Computed example of a mutant assay.
Amino acid sequence: MWYYTAVLILVGCLKNPEIQVGAISICMNYQLWTLMVAVGFNAAYDFFLLSCFTISVRVSNELGANHPKAAKFSVVVATTTSAAIGLVFTAVALAARKQMPRLFTGDDAVVNETAKLGYLLAATIFLNSIQPVLSGVAIGAGWQSLVAFVNIGCYYLVGLPLGAVFGFKLKLNATGIWAGMVIGTVLQTIILFVILARTRWQKEAMLAEERIRTWGGNIDLPSIQENQEETK
């Protein structure tokens, strides 16, 4: 939300700010509607499994219970399901990029400017159907600090500066500022995806067990080392 607010401030500094801000606001409204679905998978993913756990809690619980395969499976299911629904909203945004703005305004200038942002809006919708779920998984795995640094770097050190360059220096206006935001989101999604793809879930389960012991928790299930010895 802070990121979107910063983008609006940048857009408000452009020429003809009324039209530019109007177009960006319409796109952000539709984007936030669709983002609620992806955030819902982060906050209520296991609704589909008739459970009340969040994806973050689900991953942390599975790791703490020494179920690394279940944790990995949860990641795959949550990501693919959210991405599939994101594709639907992306298709709607592309198909209705000229008609959708008229739900918010009758000003032809604002409608035309919003339609120009339609392709970038569609890309943002698809990315944001994946990124919140990946962030939730990373948080559930205990990488809160890493996620924070990734967010700050991608959004505020890459996305906003590039948006300012595109919007003001290259005179691409709201389209350029939104393009910078998309680049920041792409970078964040790629980084999180690479981190998760290279994750060794068995090792993360061992680290979760160590954290439980460190903080005085009780482990009723057999430890990972015992399971490995029995397997051997």
Rank of each mutant, 00 (worst) to 15 (best):
M181T: 03
L117Q: 00
V111R: 01
R211V: 07
E62W: 02
A179F: 08
N42V: 07
S25F: 01
A148P: 04
F149D: 07
K98P: 03
V88M: 10
T185D: 04
S82K: 05
L117N: 00
A78G: 07
T105H: 01
G163C: 04
S51I: 07
I26T: 00
C13N: 12
D107W: 01
Y119P: 01
T5M: 11
G142F: 03
A109N: 14
I183T: 08
V57G: 06
V165C: 09
P17T: 01
A84M: 14
V11N: 00
L94P: 02
V11D: 00
S145F: 11
Q20M: 03
V133F: 06
E230C: 07
S74Q: 04
S74D: 07
R213A: 14
P17G: 01
A122Y: 04
A38H: 02
T90I: 02
F149R: 13
L187P: 03
A141E: 06
F47I: 11
L170T: 01
E210Q: 15
R198M: 13
N16A: 05
V59C: 10
A23C: 09
I26N: 00
W178F: 08
W143D: 12
K15F: 01
Q188R: 13
G86Q: 05
F53M: 13
V158A: 02
V59P: 05
Q31A: 12
H67F: 15
S74P: 03
K203P: 01
A83E: 04
V92A: 13
